Amino acid sequence: MSILELQGAGFAYGHRTVVDDVTLSVSAGEAVGLVGESGAGKSTILALLLGLATPRTGSVLFDGVPLDRRDRRLMRRFRANVQTVFQDPYSSLDPRQRIDRIVAEPLRSLGIARGDEARRSVMDAVAAVGLDADVLRRYPHEFSGGQRQRIAIARAIVSKPRVLLADEPVSALDVTTRIQVIELLQALRRETGLALIMVSHDLSAVAALCERTVVLQHGRVVEAGSTGDVLHAPQTAYARTLVSAIPRLPSSPTAE
């Protein structure tokens, strides 16, 4: 059964339609790539999936139940189970706060855990992304871009969500660090059954991480299927153009 799903979703800004009859879903342990050039509607779809915008047509379903922002109990459960990682690890972390408070923020804001329980959850999340506990007393400016993105991922998984929405999570990183973060996301999926929807311009990252790919053009799905089929046998001219621009990634990463 799908955990998070769009069914025939449409959205417009004024008279301009930016998402038109989009259907997609993700199940436990699955990774879905959402690709397309700028203006294709990817960010709007992410906002719909996060419950930050309400579709004008169609619906957003969480565990088969239509998302309703007026239902506080449903939204609290939704917020705990659907988390996000943003593109820029430099701007997504508050520079005035120590890492322990940054990672614990979802626990505080959602009222999930406090005190010793929260501290244990924070330490577990930091360990899960491959960082030592001593990072917790430091500040974001003391870390590299790759380390900051690991911290952002720790913040996203500290509430033990079932779905992670990743908005260009590796595009601001150098190539080697990009591979390491992709491998981290793969490991988290294997170990926890985390579902992932990744919005990306970078089809090479999607190829490395996602089983299914959805191709958007002008707010509509123009192609969808297994990532292998979409990348190796695209059916539309638009998808073929995207695939032709895939860069090659190194075959094996080195340590940061």
Results as ranks from 00 to 15, higher is better:
Ser251Ile: 04
Gly193Leu: 01
Arg240Met: 10
Arg119Phe: 03
Ala40Phe: 07
Gly64Cys: 01
Arg16Ala: 13
Arg76Leu: 15
Ser251Glu: 15
Arg69Gly: 05
Gln83Ser: 03
Gln217Thr: 00
Thr241Gly: 08
Val230Gln: 06
Arg76Cys: 04
Asp134Tyr: 08
Ile157Ser: 05
Ser226His: 07
Thr44Arg: 13
Thr57Val: 10
Asp20Asn: 10
Leu48Ala: 11
Gly39Ser: 03
Arg240Lys: 15
Gln235Leu: 03
Leu50Asn: 11
His232Phe: 06
Ile112Glu: 10
Gly111Ser: 12
Arg98Glu: 00
Arg220Glu: 14
Leu196Arg: 08
Ser252Arg: 13
Asp167Lys: 07
Ala127Thr: 12
Ala208Trp: 05
Arg56Pro: 00
Ala12Cys: 05
Thr213Ile: 09
Lys160Ser: 15
Gly145Leu: 12
Pro169Asn: 01
Gly64Phe: 04
Met75Trp: 02
Glu168Ile: 13
Leu249Thr: 01
Pro106Ile: 13
Leu4Ser: 08
Asp88Lys: 07
Gly193Gln: 08
Pro89Phe: 09
Ser171Tyr: 02
Leu48Val: 06
Gly193Met: 01
Gln83Met: 00
Met198Lys: 04
Leu107Ile: 12
Leu24Tyr: 02
Leu49Cys: 03
Ala195Tyr: 09
Leu50Ala: 15
Val82Pro: 09
His232Ala: 11
Arg114Leu: 02
Gly14Tyr: 10
Ser200Arg: 06
Arg79Tyr: 15
Ala239Cys: 14
Thr176Cys: 15
Glu5Met: 08
Asp229Cys: 01
Ala239Thr: 15
Thr54Val: 15
Glu211Ser: 14
Arg148Asn: 11
Leu242Gly: 02
Leu184Gly: 11
Glu142Ser: 13
Thr254Ala: 14
Pro66Trp: 05
Asp202His: 01
Thr254Glu: 15
Leu216Cys: 10
Val170Cys: 03
Gly10Val: 09
Gly228Asn: 06
Leu4Thr: 04
Ile112Met: 07
Val221Lys: 02
Thr213Val: 04
Leu165Glu: 09
Glu191Phe: 05
Ala208Lys: 13
Leu131Cys: 11
Lys42Gly: 03
Val85Thr: 04
